[in-house]
Design a binder for these strands. Structure first.
Length: 831
RNA sequence: GGGGCCGUAGCCCAACGGCAGAGGCGGCGCGUUUAGGUCGCGUACAGUGCGGGUUCGAAUCCCGCCGGCCCUACCA
């Protein structure tokens, strides 16, 4: 729909849809955004990646914002004349495809690839500057075979392993979930309460890289959002402390606990083991067996939500056994409780109720002793019920008495080390990455289980292990084991080692594996002998600018960082961090709330584009505010964006009709020329700073200045008007590519405006003849002076003091100080 | 409970520690128009959530509150 229907201005107004078709066809033919692999091409290289979409349907408003932002970054680099790699692909494995297949009795690939086509077409329409020749889909065998290849390499390096573990299990999706996929005790995908189960699962040993993931963040400081770095730091959760071994009565082996407060060891008055850990079961004395079993059953019934609810009273049961404090020989009772987590530290703790609130709550509930060992000057926890954690002198602590906390910690670690009952250590909150999924639409794990040879890797030359294509619909319905287990022909194979009958592993990999390295594949997407070409990735990588939502601040970004470091260790890449800069755009919301079906506040991207055109929608997204902020669609006006684009378009058309390309701008109106060059300067700065809303505001000002020059200034034929119109086309091309291309053509240019046309402002036109200097008396503005930009401080001070207005305000007060910030400000401090 | 981000006109948002207002929406007015819309021009509207502090000078830096959002959550 155009803004105008049929009167005399129709020919200077634009029809978005006509332009879209015209320029799409042109771009499809000329492929202007293809990255060059010519070794002789010595232009600076730039690698810009948008987080690839999951093909859940057509593109939505969130995609529109994210990709509009990424496109400004990429198009700016194109305009600078750089060799830009700006690829696109699809994260096309995952649950929804399987659910759709079950519903429609089809194969997940049908739904997936149909949606990919829809999205690809929408991307074309949306005018994103992709190099389409590098398109990839993670569900293609030529992609996922390399997930399998990486798995085997990781396994060789001891970074992929299997273990029994308590896992998060989603009863609805019938699959395990990674910790990262459990949100407040619920399945991230379907919202069902997660329960805990013991299963034998594959893991990637990300914990081995915990320190490097932490340390290398120094490289990212200032280039990633602080918020994201903080979230990752917290997620990794490094904490320094000590392992302490407690002997157990009637058991040969001691039990180790981790503590961050080894200095309070003399205050340990009981010992707690996670109720759901095997250790609790093992330590339980026969006479307490019944009570323990009952308690354990009660704990197992709790969902994570109930278990995690705050202000829950402490529960637990005495196990009838005792541990021996290694420093003072105290015999302390061992309890089982659910406030101790089985999978953190060693699943057991020494409880120091005087100085840990949780332990104190437990002690008070069960009448266990509380012994103060740090004198902090606070109320006695025995009376107050509040554990003390402040600084103070150690008491009741033998050799530690009189020491401060910071002196006592190294001392006790020394003592423990001498006796061989402990040592300083570091513990992490980060857990290993649970890889296995009992679902169909993912990468099969390339392992064969042989009754005689055990766990046998699929030989590289047999990769990829393809998904069977005859499973569809009901075959895929969740049964608690992978659907692949039902594909007999697929499961039963000969053992690669002994040739005997064996079975394939029937689990598939977490799809976060797919997204952990796709940005490496883009550099050589057709490589057949390796996941990627080493030279290609080291030429393009790491990604200069990565763009995506902060919902992936922990998961995807952490896994990608981990993968990159492993590949660095394997000698496959020369960098240790995958993304030099990351920009996390906000969400598009409506009326203060996330768009959702239940609220009925969804806005359809296709409908918005039909109504206002691509350029207006993109402009609206970018002008709404800084890219990190959420956009409330109720607060913005695509209609106003369209009005502006029409205004800009008319300026370009009128300038194009009134003059020819190549006229000498030096002969044009000086005031407009200054405005044009100021705009160039400011737009460049704003784009560099990723303040796209500000950049657009500057372009708007230039359009207004050009409008006035045409209507009530030197007129449309003035060379300065042409110069302004060309700068409008060039700068606008980052945001509104269709109008910019058409305007450029109407200005008499052939070829695309989008590549290598950015201009550098003429410094001579940026210097002002005079600036306004503010003269303050006691910090209040009392006069303004027009002065030369290069005026000296002395001269400025003299002029300010000479001002009659200023002198009046000073009156008979004493001048105590004169602050001069030439050429813009003088502040006269009076006393 | 812990950590982080944000509060500027009716609304969305700008402002290297230096005149609080760049831009837009929405108002209002004038012109164009038979009229509406479009188009052009012009206007009004806040003293920066609250209280302290640092400074010649604070929306900006620091501390404490209030309000909103996000992350994390019995991690020993």
């Amino acid at each position: 729909m155009t803004a105008v229907d049929g009167d005399q201005v129709a020919n200077d107004s634009y029809d978005a849809h006509t332009l879209q078709e015209k320029w799409q066809a042109r771009w499809a033919k000329e492929n202007p955004f293809a990255a060059s692999e010519d070794p002789a091409d010595d232009r600076p290289r730039s690698y810009v990646v948008d987080m690839f979409p999951y093909p859940s349907g057509d593109l939505h408003m969130g995609h529109a914002e994210a990709f509009a932002i990424g496109d400004v970054v990429a198009r700016y680099r194109f305009q600078l004349g750089e060799n830009v790699l700006h690829p696109i692909g699809w994260d096309s494995f995952g649950l929804p495809a399987e659910n759709a297949a079950i519903k429609h009795g089809t194969h997940p690939a049908e739904w997936t690839y149909a949606n990919i086509e829809t999205q690809a077409e929408s991307f074309h329409r949306y005018g994103i500057s992709f190099d389409w020749s590098r398109r990839l889909h993670t569900s293609d065998p030529e992609y996922y075979r390399w997930n399998q290849w990486f798995f085997l390499r990781f396994r060789e390096r001891g970074l992929a392993y299997r273990k029994d573990g308590l896992v998060n299990w989603c009863p609805k999706d019938q699959t395990v979930l990674a910790n990262e996929q459990v949100v407040q005790g619920r399945c991230e995908r379907c919202g069902t309460e997660v329960v805990r189960r013991t299963l034998n699962q594959w893991y990637y040993k990300i914990t081995e890289y915990a320190d490097r993931l932490l340390e290398d963040m120094a490289q990212l400081e200032g280039k990633w959002a602080d918020e994201v770095l903080t979230m990752q730091r917290n997620w990794i959760g490094r904490s320094q402390g000590a392992d302490v071994r407690f002997a157990i009565e009637g058991r040969d082996e001691p039990v180790t606990v981790f503590t961050t407060r080894p200095d309070t060891l003399y205050g340990a008055t009981f010992f707690v083991v996670a109720a759901d850990a095997p250790l609790a079961d093992e330590l339980c004395a026969p006479e307490q067996r019944e009570a323990f079993e009952e308690y354990r059953a009660q704990v197992a019934k709790l969902s994570d939500i109930e278990r995690q609810s705050t202000e829950r009273e402490k529960t637990g049961v005495f196990l009838g056994r005792y541990a021996i404090n290694p420093v003072n020989g105290d015999r302390i009772p061992i309890w089982a409780a659910d406030y101790v987590l089985a999978d953190y530290g060693h699943g057991a703790i020494m409880a120091v109720p005087a100085h840990d609130q949780r332990d104190l709550d437990f002690a008070r509930k069960f009448g266990l002793p509380v012994r103060v060992v740090v004198e902090t000057g606070e109320a006695d926890p025995n009376d107050s019920g509040v554990a003390t954690a402040g600084e103070g002198k150690l008491v009741n602590s033998g050799p530690l008495d009189g020491l401060s906390k910071s002196e006592a910690i190294p001392r006790i670690i020394e003592i423990l080390a001498e006796r061989g009952t402990g040592e300083g250590t570091i513990n992490y909150r980060l857990r290993d990455w649970l890889l296995s999924r009992q679902r169909f639409w993912g990468t099969p794990i390339p392992i064969i289980h042989c009754p005689s040879c055990g766990e046998v890797p699929v030989p590289d030359e047999q990769l990829p292990v393809l998904l069977p294509d005859d499973l569809r619909g009901a075959d895929l319905a969740p049964k608690g084991v992978s659907p692949l287990a039902a594909a007999d022909d697929w499961v039963n194979v000969d053992c690669p080692e002994c040739g005997g009958p064996a079975k394939r592993d029937t689990d598939t990999m977490d799809t976060f594996v797919d997204s952990s390295w796709y940005f490496l594949r883009y550099c050589s997407p057709h490589e057949e002998n390796a996941p990627f070409d080493r030279d290609a990735i080291n030429k393009w990588g790491p990604v200069d600018q990565y763009i995506g939502g902060k919902e992936h601040a922990i998961l995807h970004l952490l896994y990608s960082r981990f993968f990159t470091k492993v590949l660095y260790d394997m000698g496959m890449v020369e960098f240790t961090e995958p993304f030099t800069r990351v920009l996390n755009q906000g969400q598009v919301i409506n009326q203060g709330k996330a768009m959702s079906k239940s609220l009925g506040n969804g806005v359809d991207l296709g409908a918005e584009i039909d109504k206002y055109g691509v350029d207006a929608v993109r402009l609206t997204m970018l002008f709404a505010g800084p890219p990190e902020d959420d956009i409330d669609w109720a607060d913005v006006s695509p209609a106003a964006s369209l009005k502006f684009l029409n205004r800009a378009f008319r300026v370009m058309v009128q300038a194009g009709e009134a003059s020819q390309p190549g006229v000498d701008p030096a002969e044009g109106d000086l005031a407009l020329r200054r405005a044009t060059h100021q705009t160039l300067d400011k737009v460049t700065a704003a784009v560099e700073a990723q303040r796209f809303n500000v950049a657009i505001a500057r372009i708007m000002e230039l359009v207004t200045a050009a409008r006035r020059a045409i209507d009530s200034g030197p007129g449309a034929a003035d060379p300065a008007v042409r110069e302004a119109a060309e700068v409008i086309a060039i700068t606008l091309s980052l945001v509104a590519p269709y109008v910019a291309e058409e305007g450029w053509e109407r200005l008499g240019h052939r070829g695309s405006v989008a590549i290598g046309n950015w201009r550098t402002p003429d410094p001579a036109l940026l210097v002002q003849e005079s600036v306004t200097c503010v003269v303050q008396v006691a910090s209040k503005v009392r006069d303004k002076l027009e002065v030369a930009p290069d005026i000296s401080a002395e001269e400025l001070e003299r002029l300010a003091l000479a001002s009659e207005k200023v002198r009046n305000f000073i009156g008979d007060r004493q001048i105590r100080k004169v602050v001069v910030r030439a050429p813009k400000l003088v502040n006269i401090v009076v006393g």
